[in-house]
Amino acid sequence: MTSSGHAMRAVITTLRVLETVAELQPVGVSAIARATGIPKSSVHRCLVTLREADWLTSSSTDRTQWVLTGRALSVGIHASVEGGLREAALPTMQRLRDETHETIHLLSYSRDQGLVVVDRLDSDEPVRTWVHLGARVPMHASCSGRAVLAHLPEADVDRLLGGELERFSENTPADKQAVTEDLLTVRKSGYATNNCAWRPGVGAVGAALLDKGGRPVGALAVSAPIQRYDEERAVRLGALVVEAARRIGAKLRST
């Protein structure tokens, strides 16, 4: 086989490993080898290559398990366009950004991937907030996550809040009881709020995007530097994000 043939085979093998991790994550070397028929030594080399290229990383809960990075998720998001979510949301996102002059984040939710940022429209203010595309967002600590949790079945909420909840700041609701109590408020108002609970210096409001069956498929959030965020503004932004999420949901349900 020529050198170019060897190189092509190596690329194909590496892509097979990447695809297998995407399908089975979190997954270890032995499971990847069984699923692909690729020797463990070759699987390990591919994993190291993909880690160095920032496509894969070790699971935060088990260093022997492998998962996709935000970079890989972002590429997948742009390739699949999340079933039309971005197209359905973009006009409303633009209108909401123009109304609020703050950064608008669109997030996709699935049981397997959790909550992932799939699009962003930046504020036109000189000081603004920012989250990179493909970022995984904590369910308990973010307004988007709690907006989604408020629409999930109790069994799913228990599963997502069952482990140890990471504390990002003194404002993070880092135990199940605190989160579930907040969900009662979210269900009444239609939106969740965030006062530096996830990212320092950032306030935000978020509402869930619902499919035809009333299940959450994502969330819409408005985030602002804490200098432009207080309880009174959170109420105003909350009303706007609820209406924006309603419009996007209606568009999703009509397609």
Rank of each mutant, 00 (worst) to 15 (best):
M1E: 15
S3K: 14
M8P: 00
V11Y: 07
V17P: 00
L18E: 02
L18S: 04
L18K: 01
V21H: 05
A22M: 06
E23H: 07
P26G: 10
A31P: 04
A31K: 13
A33W: 00
A33I: 02
P39H: 02
P39A: 14
V48Q: 13
R51Y: 00
A53C: 06
S60N: 09
D62V: 10
T64E: 15
T69N: 04
A72N: 05
A72P: 05
S74T: 08
S74M: 06
I77V: 10
A79H: 10
L85C: 01
A88C: 07
P91Y: 05
L96V: 09
D98H: 08
E102L: 08
H105V: 05
H105K: 04
S108Q: 15
Q113D: 09
L115Y: 10
V117C: 06
D119P: 03
L121N: 11
D124W: 05
D124H: 09
D124G: 15
E125L: 14
H132M: 10
L133R: 07
R136Y: 08
H140R: 08
H140L: 06
A141G: 09
S142M: 01
A147N: 02
V148G: 00
L152N: 05
P153E: 03
E154T: 14
L160R: 14
E164M: 12
R167Y: 07
F168S: 14
S169W: 02
N171R: 14
V179Q: 03
R187Y: 08
K188L: 12
G190W: 11
P200I: 09
G201V: 07
G206F: 01
A207T: 08
G214C: 01
V217M: 06
L220W: 00
A221T: 08
V222Q: 02
V222T: 04
V222W: 03
P225R: 10
P225F: 01
R228P: 00
R233V: 11
A234C: 06
A234M: 00
A234G: 12
R236H: 04
R236V: 14
A239L: 15
V242D: 03
E243T: 15
E243G: 06
A244V: 09
S254D: 13
T255N: 09
